[in-house]
């Protein structure tokens, strides 16, 4: 920033000494176009600003307001103060769904980022071409609905191919979506299947920024592959890993479509993730006020988690440097 200011002042000073017309012309044009720019600039950003105001800022403020009301869509909202918050604190189902969501997030982020990291490193070390990486992101291209449908079919207790295999080995099928213990891990596995390739490609891009000479130096010093991975790759990859973890936490916390299509939160609320519960409250029971309170809680939770992660990441970074 400072250098550019110096540059332009130097030019102005140098200007008259060399040729007169251009600087004069530029000086005339400068402020004039700047005044023009303001109008044009506002014209250009108008659609975005309008969209921001109408479909983001206003709904957000309205969401906060609705959180403190009794609102059933057909009649106007009625201010009830902290009644919804009180209901939230005493709502066992809400806390249960929060627990289910946390369980799902931890499983799918730990497993997902772990597998993606290994895959990315393997792809990088083997020097595999773009086509293979392309195949990896195929699941990213299809919707959560399609993911849930095909896996529900493959995991079907009687006819699913996976259960055919399991029955052949153990003699008994596994009720992946039908048993309380399996439902959330199965959903997490689906989520990992869908997002793994995308994450691996992200991490792979991070690996490409690490210069090969670092590894050569490591090899000359007699480091093993594992040692190089631990003390070279991981620390250098930290910024991109932090980003991948944060992105995955944010999207896993809001998981909805694969749950809604496969288990609908069942059996017996075993996979009732928060978003599913919010949807059910709002559109199953038309309790919009309370649904808004829960989404406000989810929002505050996400903000806290994200900031904590960023802070931890930053603390770690200054540590290694």
């Amino acid at each position: 920033m400072v250098t550019t200011v110096q540059d332009s002042s130097a030019q102005v000073v140098r200007g008259p000494a060399t040729t007169a017309p251009p600087p004069a012309r530029r000086r005339r044009k400068g402020p004039a176009s700047r005044r023009n720019d303001t109008w044009v600039a506002w014209l250009l950003v108008a659609p975005a600003v309008l969209g921001f105001g109408v479909f983001f800022a206003y709904p957000m403020l309205r969401g906060v307001y609705l959180s403190f009301t009794e609102f059933h869509i057909l009649t106007p909202p009625v201010w009830t103060g902290l009644a919804n918050v009180q209901q939230l604190v005493n709502d066992g189902r809400f806390w249960h769904s929060l627990g289910v969501t946390a369980y799902f997030v931890v499983l799918s982020v730990v497993l997902g980022v772990g597998v993606s990291l290994i895959t990315a490193v393997v792809l990088h070390r083997l020097g595999v071409n773009t086509t293979v990486r392309g195949l990896m992101i195929l699941p990213f291209l299809i919707s959560g609905v399609v993911t849930a449908l095909v896996w529900t079919w493959m995991l079907d207790p009687q006819l699913g191919i996976v259960n055919q295999l399991i029955t052949w080995v153990t003699g008994e099928p596994v009720m992946f979506f039908g048993s309380g213990g399996w439902a959330v891990p199965t959903l997490a596995a689906l989520n990992v299947w869908k997002s793994m390739g995308y994450n691996a490609v992200l991490i792979f891009a991070g690996l490409q920024t690490i210069s090969a000479s670092i590894y050569e130096a490591g090899r000359i010093d007699g480091a093993s592959e594992w040692q190089m991975f631990r003390s070279l790759t991981l620390p250098l990859l930290r910024p991109i890993l932090v980003m991948v973890v944060i992105l995955n936490v944010i999207s896993a916390t809001q998981v909805f479509d694969i749950v809604q299509v496969s288990t609908k939160g069942g059996p017996a609320d075993a996979s009732l993730v928060l978003q599913m519960y919010i949807y059910d409250k709002a559109f199953g029971q038309f309790d919009f006020g309370y649904a808004a309170t829960m989404s406000l809680a989810l929002f505050l939770l996400l903000v806290t988690v994200t900031f904590t992660q960023m802070r931890m990441a930053r603390a770690g970074e200054s540590d290694t440097n």
């Binding site: 479909f55 983001f56 969401g63 809001q254 808004a292 989404s295 989810l298 929002f299």
Partner: peptide, 24 residues
């Protein structure tokens, strides 16, 4: 300033605006 304000939207998960947007 305008750019900074618009960027705040990156921080807010879509869940939070979807319900009020439905009402809108």
């Amino acid at each position: 300033v305008v750019f900074g304000v618009l960027l705040t939207a990156l921080m807010v998960p879509s869940v939070f605006t979807l319900l009020p947007n439905f009402v809108l």
